[in-house]
Amino acid sequence: MDYFLKLLLSGTAKGSIYALIALGYTMVYGIIKLINFAHGEIYMIGAFVALLVGGTLQSAGVNPAVILVVSTLAAVFFAAAYGLTMEKIAYKPLRTAPRLSVLISAIGMSMFLQNLVLLSQTEKYLSFPSFLPEFLFLKPIRGYINSTQFIILIITSIVMVLLTLLIKFTLIGKAMRATSQDREMAQLVGININSVITVTFIIGSATAAIGGILICSYMGQINYYIGFIAGIKAFVAAVLGGIGSIPGAVLGSFVLGWTESLGTGYISSDYEDSFAFIILILILTVKPSGILGRKENQKV
């Protein structure tokens, strides 16, 4: 029972890592029906900016709390700028093109950003200092979860709630939902869909950057390739939960995390990915739009 509980908590921690990335993925998809494959790269770039800024401040001996705030702000700012530019260059010109063209453009963007960081920074693994306050839980809890995992879990929940509130109850949220339902009709009633899409990208990229800082603090390392691997898993989680649904992304991530963790614990980690995809196939066979997804006619 104790072992089961440990695995379940491992899975929860893992799921909240996937969820942090899946949230931005699913939000962008929900509003503009675009699978932004470059989302993982924005997460990686956010983490790199935090490393550059935070590392410089750390060697200058600045207060850790200040470092956390400043590097987070810098990461969010840069990630949002990248997201915005990416949208303007790679997606906006293709707004009326078939969805497949935009998808290919997104894959190209993902490769471009990976290689940009590879060439402009380094191909090596770098150490990522933990910007988060570390504290030790008392003995029985300590074996189950550590402080960074706990913080990731909390932040994931906060981001999920904030995004849901934003989309349900604010004016921009209303405009987002309208854009999502029918782009042309939204334009006819006076919604500036370009600015709605821009804001969507900025928010999505900002969540990715926050995810980057938290997850890299947990892993303790960074490399230009981390976004790709994390992006794929987050994408699976988002589809599992029903792509486009914010609580769905979180639920899908947890289901994925639990599956992988329990599969590893009771069967073998050799088949970790297989478990993830078996559960994906099972759920999509029973409910093609994902656990919390709404039924839709068009799919990519």
Binding site: Y3, K6, L7, S10, G11, A13, K14, I17, G143, Q149, I215, Y218, M219, Y225, I226, I229, A230, E260, S261, L262, T264, G265, S268, S269, D270, E272, D273
Partner: peptide, 20 residues
């Protein structure tokens, strides 16, 4: 005796398994 996924962000499940 197990293989793990290279590049995965988290190995806590397999670490639990080692402990167990």
């Amino acid at each position: 005796f197990e293989g793990v996924n290279p590049g995965a962000p988290d190995y806590s499940a397999v670490v639990n398994k080692i402990g167990n």
